[in-house]
Design a protein around this nucleic acid. Structure first.
Lengths: 150, 150
DNA sequence: CCGGGAGTGATACACTGTAACAGTGCCGAC
DNA sequence: GTCGGCACTGTTACAGTGTATCACTCCCGG
């Protein structure tokens, strides 16, 4: 993850600083997509306080690079699971049971959305597609209940 | 707008109170999609203060009925422009120039999204699709500039 | 009259995000 | 080497968004 970030930063001649790496790692390491304040708390230790505003700046930077996505419906952040550049359409699958967020792309959705927008005379710059529901793992787990081992 | 709301409330045996009507009308009357605090301010007059919390309650109620939608990327609310019930998929077109938000539906997008989700083993409960860009009116206006009359 | 539920008012608070300014370190110009 | 500029981070303060909690009213049925 950090390796790709470094590469991207070299390409664009921007700095991949320690704080930015730490924020990226914090996002990547979290079970559930953390909020900015969660990240700030996580990075703060006795003797070193990371303010939310610093986290926001790092997150903005990482989002610019497409390394992190923002989940608008949750005010949370997820590491980008693919290697798409910024600007590509992503579908976020938000599990309301486990709280996990998966990411997928769909050329099919993208093209049909493109047609719909064209029909409406709308020029898209950027879109958000978030679906809340139940992920396969959680559904299986709840159906196989009663003996839902470990 | 209010007529349809009253009908819906009768059907479901819930109350369409004065406050709820006022909030609905405030949302419908706004040029730009207002935030909850905007609505609260709008409904407050000397001698009568409507607290944001009351507005939120009314908005929750109205969203339940599908009369109002929440724009997650803007923390704003729009009146529902269609007569779909809750649960139907809607695409929001957010113009970054005029700030207006248009609403459309697309069975095409809906079905392709459905297939994508099925492929991912994900059971959707509810989805958010918001596109930011330029609406036709604004694009025309900026291109026809220089003589952009009234 | 009494009890209970729905709705609202009011206050306080938690959470999310931004503005503004100061300090630091790096790097090129001189 | 020193100066000045730039990018980055720290710090404080604040604006904006949303929720918890309790009190009160109103209505309605017993």
């Amino acid at each position: 993850m950090a390796a790709r970030a470094e590469e991207l930063c070299r390409e664009r001649s921007v700095q991949f600083t320690a704080l930015r790496r730490e924020v990226l790692e914090a996002v990547a390491a979290s079970e559930r997509p953390p909020g900015a304040y969660d990240i700030a708390e996580r990075l703060s230790k006795p003797g070193r306080r990371v303010a939310p505003v610093s986290v926001y700046r790092a997150l903005d930077f990482l989002m610019e690079l497409g390394l992190v996505h923002r989940i608008a419906s949750r005010n949370a952040f997820v590491p980008c699971a693919h290697e798409h550049g910024a600007g590509e359409n992503v579908v976020f699958l938000i599990c309301r049971t486990c709280g996990g967020i998966d990411e997928t792309t769909s050329p099919e959705v993208e093209s049909s959305l493109g047609r719909t927008l064209a029909r409406a005379g709308f020029t898209p710059a950027h879109s958000i597609l978030e679906v809340e529901g139940d992920c396969g793992a959680c559904r299986t787990r709840s159906q196989g209940a009663g003996r839902a081992g470990a």
